[in-house]
Structure formats: C-alpha cells, structure tokens
C-alpha cells in the first residue's frame, strides 16, 4: 500500500569562502553609443551568472540589460575573479560589477553635469538617460554623454573595482569569528508516497521557499532552485558511488549511478522570500548551492511521516526504506504512525 507523508526542512547557508579572501574584480566600459561592456573573470557554468551581472551593470548605469555585453573567462582579458564557486558570483562579483559601473557612471556624471548645468551629485541614470533628480525633463541620452566624454572631453567612462567579502578570522580554539559576510535561508517541504511493501519512494511535490536577497532575475533563481532540488532528490534517494573491497568504483557510469531522470522529478513550487541585504548589490545575496541543501532532509522527514521509519544513512534506497519499515514494526510499533492518509496502491 502507498502511504503519503510530508516533511519539512529549513537551512542556512553562507555566501562566499570561509574567512579566506575571495575577491572579484570587474571592469565596466561605456561605449560611445551608451552601450557597455563588462569584463569579468568569472565563468558561465550554466547558472546564468553573466545575465545577472549584465543586469547589475545595467541597473547601475541606467541602461537595459541587453545594452551590456559581458566578456568573461579569459585570463588574458578579464580581471581577477575567485570564480564560479561558493554561491558567490551574484554577491561578490555582483558587488564588484556594481562598483565598477558606479565609477564609470561617475565619469559620465562629471561630463554631463556642466552640460545640464547642475552638480554631478544631482544626477541620476535611468532609461538610457542621465537626468536631473526630480527634474526628469532635464536630461541627456546616455549615448550623447558617453560620446561627449570619449571624444570631446577625452575622459573615457571606464570603471574598475573589486570586492572582497568582509570577514573576521575564527579563533582556532573556539571557532568564534565572523567567517562569512552574509547568509541565506530556506525551507523546503516535500510530499512523498511510500510503498510500504517495496520501500519505493515517490516524491510528488516540493514547495521551496528560498531567500536570495533581491532576486536580480527571478526566472534564473527559479531555475537554480528547480535544478538544486533535482540534485537533492538524487542525494536523498538514489545516488551513490560504490566501491569494492579493494577501493575500486563499482558503478562509474550513468547506467548504474542512479541520478534523477525527468520521470523521477516531482512537481516543484518555487517561492522567493522577499528579502533585502544592504551589503549585496541592490540587496542581492545568492542562491546556487542552498537550493540542494534542504531537499534530502525534507524527503527523509516525509518518509518518516509516511511510514514511521527513520533512515539514518543516505541514500534512502527502497531497500533501506523497507528495512527501516520492517525494523520499526519489530520495535513494537503495532500500527504504522503518521499515516494520516493511506492511499490505494497500484495493485489495489
């Protein structure tokens, strides 16, 4: 019979390296037509980080996302970056990008101020324009300002900046210190069906509420969460590198290393928790790794809820789950607890 259960798990996760310096640098160059080029040493490994960085640069410069072209991942061309690791790109490289764009913008403002007859600090950049705060009709297209800066004033609007998350080393005896600049938080709730005769677990639904600070691009945040959950499901139920007694891997292939296929994925509901971190670029923190942190815990709690069996070692394969069910029965649990709703099995 299939028994349904639900499980909850929450977590916290830091952004960036543990104390160790993990700087990023960035350069933003505004072209004479008001478009911009961002140089970053980070690497696009699928997360969409280049899109996010373009959005951050665009926001700071007051232009559109596709006005920013990102050049990345070339040590001859791009500035130092600690890389696509530790969920740090949006926060650390994002901060560097914003600061670099701010410097380029400052040059534009210095050029624009006399053209508009105001002080630079009275200006703002919006909608591809540089305009006077509270007097948006007094404006110049950013292209005109950039062109003027480059070819009349001879002051190219280029900004370079770097960012390293502030930390305080941990005491070696007590571990006390400030190892990370910021943390994100999340909760996932899993709903599963457990076949109490075979131990098979089917994950039906996962609700994921994640904090990433400001979501620079909610669509990409959703993608990260959905993907992280698939990894979490593999960790929870299926995946394991096995060794023989001589230390050689038994299953180094995708036939016998069981990762989730499209058929193994549940319905996922993503919720982005409103949050703003004043230390991040436009309030952003990060989202990459945390997405797969609470999934296994939530699923294992749901299994426990469904059949009253606690599996203490991952992955909770069907065989382990069945063994745990049998054990919990032996331990005098006359009735399976937690079976709020027993639903019919396939054979019934």
């Amino acid at each position: 019979m299939k028994r349904r259960g639900r499980g909850i798990a929450c977590m916290w996760y830091p952004i960036g390296f543990t104390v160790a310096a993990n700087p990023s640098a960035a350069t933003v160059k505004v072209n004479e037509d008001g478009t911009a080029t961002l140089l970053t040493g980070t690497v696009e490994t699928g997360q969409g980080s280049l899109t996010v960085l373009a959005q951050i640069a665009a926001e700071e410069l007051g232009v559109a996302t596709e006005d920013v072209h990102v050049v990345s991942a070339d040590t001859d061309v791009t500035p130092m970056d600690t890389g696509a690791i530790a969920s740090r790109t949006t926060y650390v490289t994002g901060n560097a990008t914003r600061l670099a764009a701010e410097k380029a913008k400052a040059i534009l403002f210095n050029v624009a101020a006399p053209m508009l007859g105001v002080r630079p600090d009275q200006l703002e950049a919006r909608d591809r324009k540089i305009q006077v705060k509270r007097f948006p009709q007094r404006q110049l297209p950013i292209s005109q300002v950039a062109h003027h800066a480059l070819f009349v004033k001879g002051d190219p609007p280029i900004g370079s900046a770097s960012f390293n998350p502030p930390t305080v080393a941990m005491d070696p005896e007590t571990g006390q210190g400030l190892p990370f600049a910021t943390y994100v938080y999340a909760t996932q709730i899993a709903e599963v069906d457990v076949d109490d005769e075979t131990g098979e677990v089917e994950v039906l639904r996962i609700v994921a509420s994640h904090d990433c600070g400001t979501a620079i691009n909610p669509m990409l945040v959703e993608g990260q969460i959905e993907g992280g959950i698939s990894m979490g499901i593999g960790l929870a139920l299926q995946e394991e590198i096995l060794f023989d007694d001589k230390g050689r891997q038994i299953n180094p292939n995708l036939t016998n290393y069981i990762m989730p296929t499209s058929l193994d994925m549940p319905e996922i509901e993503v919720d982005i928790v409103p949050s703003y971190d004043p230390t991040g670029p436009f309030g952003a923190k990060g989202v990459g790794e945390p997405t797969s942190v609470p999934t296994a815990a939530a699923i294992l709690n749901a299994i426990h809820d469904a059949v009253g069996a606690r599996v203490h070692s991952l992955p909770a394969t069907a065989e382990k789950v069945l063994a745990a069910i049998k054990e919990s029965r032996v331990q005098g649990t006359k009735q399976l607890p937690g079976t709020r709703r027993a639903i019919a099995g396939p054979a019934a």
Binding site: G227, S230, L254, M259, S262, I268
Partner: peptide, 8 residues
C-alpha cells in the same frame, strides 16, 4: 539527462 534544471 540534465543536471542543471530539474527538467521543470
């Protein structure tokens, strides 16, 4: 197989 997206 896809490892990034969860297929969603």
């Amino acid at each position: 197989l896809c490892r990034c997206t969860g297929y969603t």
